[in-house]
Structure formats: C-alpha cells, structure tokens
Computed example of a mutant assay.
Amino acid sequence: GVDKVELYKLQPRTANVLTLVENCRENTLSLLHDARYSQYRTPFGAVTEGSPIHLAFQVMGGKPLSAVLNLYGENFKAVYPMVHSGNMFSVDFKVPKKPGAMWYNFKITNADGSRWLCPDGSGYLGQVFKREHGSFRLTVYKKDFETPDWAKSSVMYQIFPDRFALSDDDTAKKGIEYHINLGQTPELHDSTLEPPRHLPRVFEDNYSPDDFYGGTLKGIAEKLPYIKSLGVNLIYLNPICEARSNHRYDTSDYKKVDPILGTNEDFEELCYKAEKLGIRII
C-alpha cells in the first residue's frame, strides 16, 4: 500500500531499502512449514496406520516451480508430487498400513536448482537447505491400539539410572572395566559431587558422553520403598541395555543389561520387588 514514487520524493533512502527488501523477497526462497500447526500438518502428532494426512508449506519468498514430498521408513520409500495453489504447496496421502517410525521432508525445484525443506534444530520448524538435511518425524501406530487402563491413572516416576542411586558394591567399577576391555574410554566419577564432563578430552575431537557416576539397578531397588512413599505406581527407566554412552540411547545389545548398571538377573529382581510394592516398570 506504499506509494514508492511519493516515498522517493520524501524519503529516498527508505524507498531504496523498501525496494531492496521487496527484491530480496521475490528472489530469495523462503518457505514455512511448522509441524505443530494444522495448516501445515493435519492431523497433529502420531497417526493410525493407513490413515489420511495433509502436509503443506507456505511460500514466503522466492518463486518455486514445483515440489515433492519425500516419505520414508523401514523398508518403505515414496515420493508424492505436491499441488501448488496460491502461496501454498500441499499434498494429501495415506500413511502405510504398518506401524512404525516414518520421516518426511520436501524437495523444491526453482530456477537455480533444487532446495530441501528440512527441520531446523527444533525438529518441527522447517528451514531451507541446499542439500537434504534431516527429516520431520511422523509416527504411525496400530489402529486398534488403546492405552491400558492402568496407565491412564498411574503416577509415573522417571529415572536416569546412572544418576539415581548407587549400590554399596563394585558393580559399576566392574562394568567400567568391561567397557575398557572393549577398547572404549569410559570414566567413573569418584564422587557424585563432581560436575559432569561436557567438553572433549585431549584425545577427542568431539565430546563423548561416557563419564559415569555409578548408579545401578540394585541402587534403584533399594530406593523402591522411598519411591512408593511418594505415591508412585509406575517407574519409567531411561535405556538400561548395553551401550557406550551414559544415556544409553546408542544401545548395542537389546538383550543385555549394561554391566555398569548390573546384570539381567538384577533387572529381574528389581521388577520382582517393584511388583510386590504394586509398582510397574517400563
């Protein structure tokens, strides 16, 4: 609504800046996809197997010629052409009839080649990249799945096993030795008062989260009466299977408890004691 002819007479510098901004908007590709909002993703969140879904992005700047949606998962890959209407590109499709973790991103073609709309660090907000740079998560779950009744009214207590409770034995120390014998470089803190390591060591280019405080499954079992006294009836454990890191999301053996935490028998004993107190464990 600005009359630039009149603006040039009154404020030539402002008029020049406005012209530059408009030119930049016309020639620089700027796209918006926010997985939290219905105009870009419907339905929100996880979807049931075989259900329809709508995905879209908005053109904020530039002149994209065409776009496709890349959808993939385990043993699955599909490319869907997108429909251009006004300042929106959209696509409607049905997710596979199989539950699992799916991923998607957008490939855009414009006058100077291809660009990808992928998530930024948030995981839900899109950012334009010159090459494929990750994907948005889309969880597909069983159509007939229902949350168990016992979970709906449970009071849950989440535990990060390495930092919760130590046991009065050498379980953690032996576990550290086990990992060292595998050629890894774990470290066991001498005290829980020591700050966690967060920087690379002299022999590392990047930080490795393999410093441990020595929490064990036996330690958790000893704290069950205290947890029960809080009114808790469900414990959610962070990963406990064998792994190199202290968070153990990089599991190497899903059938074996990490030796720093204890043994499979220790886990069975923890579950047995928790059940006697009316506490479930995930």
Rank of each mutant, 00 (worst) to 15 (best):
P161S: 00
H33L: 06
M82R: 01
G61D: 07
H33P: 05
G134L: 01
G45P: 05
G86E: 03
H133Y: 12
Q127C: 03
F57D: 01
H133K: 06
K98S: 15
G100T: 04
S90G: 09
G121P: 01
K143M: 08
V128K: 00
S90M: 11
A165F: 01
K97F: 06
F76L: 04
A46T: 12
E49A: 15
G113E: 01
S38Y: 14
S122A: 06
L71F: 05
L29W: 07
M82V: 04
A165L: 04
K63A: 15
L138K: 05
R36V: 02
N105Y: 06
S85Q: 14
T42Y: 15
K97W: 11
Y72P: 04
V155L: 12
A151W: 01
Y40C: 04
K107N: 00
I53M: 09
L31K: 07
I53P: 01
I108M: 08
F93S: 08
S30H: 11
N110T: 07
L125C: 02
D120F: 00
N75V: 13
L71R: 08
K107E: 10
G121K: 05
S114Y: 15
F129W: 11
Q127M: 08
Q158M: 11
P64Y: 03
R36C: 08
L125H: 01
K152M: 12
F44P: 02
E74F: 11
H54Y: 15
S154F: 02
K107C: 07
G123M: 00
L166P: 01
G100D: 05
T42C: 14
V91K: 01
Y141P: 00
V91N: 00
V79F: 09
A111L: 14
T42N: 15
S154A: 12
T109C: 08
F160V: 00
S114W: 08
Y37G: 09
L32F: 13
E74Y: 14
Q58C: 14
N70I: 10
G45W: 02
H84F: 12
